[in-house]
């Protein structure tokens, strides 16, 4: 018997994450704490309990991770990186606190990471990955700076397009294997940039739909195990391309619900495993896209509440 979504348990689970400061696991995840705050905050917002976390405290923590160049590190004292700069901007946007940052300065930082071929480096050390293209595009869109002189939009699109594979999917660099996480980044960025015509909708939609396994869960690549996080990476793309009906909704809902910890709260990568905040967000966000009742609608391009995107005036 599949349980219902344990909303109250999940909210408590997210609230208590910060009370585990003495545990080694909490400590070992320090370098990506800012990502963790975004996952937790977005979870409680989608669960319709925005009051569950202390906004002022979160904003102060986020600001303490900012460097003098405007960019954010994963935690206090950690180096700046695009991955955490996006999380910081997403958190502040969700909490209606974008006035705390200098949008021009952050946009200038993002611009400094764009390469001549249109790709983005994650930080000053030139690692190129379509994930960073997504971070740049999403971040600048939230800051209403998605234009010249901040970035060369056409080149950004060109690079993403060059990462498209024969199967319709996208990899981290041109010629790298198609991967649902990377596909989300490319499709999400192209959707934000209004360039969906570059996607081979049927071919990619088919590939994504084939990610559903017999147990209802989705995997990220052929021959991999199912994982709740792909309920987001795969489903958001299908939603953007209007192909959500290509997978079986009910069996995926069951799969996600069975991966919940109905006692301790939180959602795991798959039924029977230990829950974590990352899978909690992507499970809840997946359920929201699937139209599960009493959840805040989620924007498939930004992985943020639709109400926040609307408030920012983004179409």
């Amino acid at each position: 018997m599949t349980p219902k979504l344990a909303v109250a348990k999940h909210v408590t689970y997210v609230q208590e994450l910060d009370n585990k400061k003495d545990s080694f696991e909490y400590w070992a995840g320090e370098h990506l704490r800012l990502n963790g705050v975004y996952w937790g905050l977005t979870s409680v917002h989608l669960l319709k309990h925005p009051e569950a976390l202390d906004s002022a405290q979160i904003i102060e923590y986020v600001m303490s991770c900012q460097h003098t160049n405007g960019a954010f590190g994963g935690h206090i004292g950690h180096d700046p990186h695009l991955l955490y700069t996006l999380s910081a901007v997403q958190i502040l946007a969700t909490l209606d606190a974008l006035d705390r940052i200098d949008a021009d300065q952050i946009a200038t930082y993002v611009k400094s990471l764009q390469q001549p071929d249109g790709s983005f480096s994650g930080d000053e050390y030139n690692e190129i990955d379509t994930r960073f293209s997504y971070c740049a595009v999403n971040c600048l869109s939230l800051l209403n700076r998605l234009r010249q002189p901040y970035i060369d939009v056409d080149r950004a699109v060109e690079f993403i397009h060059s990462c498209k594979n024969f199967d319709g999917g996208y990899g981290s660099v041109p010629g790298a294997e198609s991967h649902s996480g990377q596909i989300f980044c490319c499709v999400g960025a192209l959707a934000i940039l209004g360039r969906l015509e570059l996607i081979e909708t049927d071919r990619l939609g088919w590939w994504l739909a084939e990610r559903q396994l017999k147990n209802g869960g989705l995997n990220g690549r052929p021959e991999k195990l199912e994982d709740v996080c792909y309920s987001w990476w795969v489903l958001s793309c299908l939603s953007i391309m209007d192909r959500i009906h290509w997978i079986n909704r009910d069996s995926l809902v069951d799969f996600i619900l069975n991966a919940q910890d109905t006692e301790g709260g939180g959602i795991a990568d798959r039924p029977g495993d230990v829950s974590d905040v990352f899978h909690t967000l992507f499970g809840v966000a997946g359920l929201s896209l699937l139209g599960y009742p009493d959840l805040e609608p989620v924007d498939p391009r930004y992985c943020m509440p639709c109400s926040v995107i609307k408030r920012l005036g983004i179409q």
Binding site: E30, H31, L32, G74, G77, H78, D79, H81, D123, Y125
Partner: peptide
């Protein structure tokens, strides 16, 4: 090895 600041 995920403490990227140490690699930096």
């Amino acid at each position: 090895p995920e403490i990227y600041t140490a690699w930096n």
